[in-house]
Amino acid sequence: MVAQNIAFGIIAGITVLAALGMVTTRNIVHAALFLVAVLGGLAANYVLLAAEFIATTQVLVYIGAVMVLFLFGIMLTRAPIGRIPQMTGASWPVAALSALALGGVTVYALIDRFGTDSLATDSTVFRTADVSDSVFSQYIVPFEAISVLLLAALIGAVVLARRD
């Protein structure tokens, strides 16, 4: 387990540094690329947790699709090279405070619920087939609800984008 702990430390360090870089950088494309590094770090941590399917989905959906669309949109509109002086909004202390509050609540909830419990090391590796089995049997209702939600968002986007 020592090797995993060292790997976790390195990956977590890079992820946190990239997250800080993302909010402090003065260039919007750099911020998006830092976000890619954050999401990649999370995917690496999922691999460490033997959650291979989630890690792959993270890469495919967040890096391969969402971030590419972000960058595509930024570059299509306005993305000057170099520092943008107006990158930090006037309300940044409020944003920092709410981010801290959210982080605090999450950490408190996790520690309060799990404390020093550790997962059994032999039974935590789920095959992808098991994941899909549970999605399509035990969690079928939430899964379908999310599908309908996404469909509604899709139709909304089409309606907003239509001119005629």
């Binding site: 495919l60 890096i63 391969g64 699709a65 590419v68 095959r127």
Partner: peptide
């Protein structure tokens, strides 16, 4: 375990 899914995911990184 997720071979072909992984392959499609990493091939999408080149766009970046």
């Amino acid at each position: 375990d997720t071979g072909v899914f992984y392959a499609l995911a990493v091939s999408s990184l080149s766009v970046l």
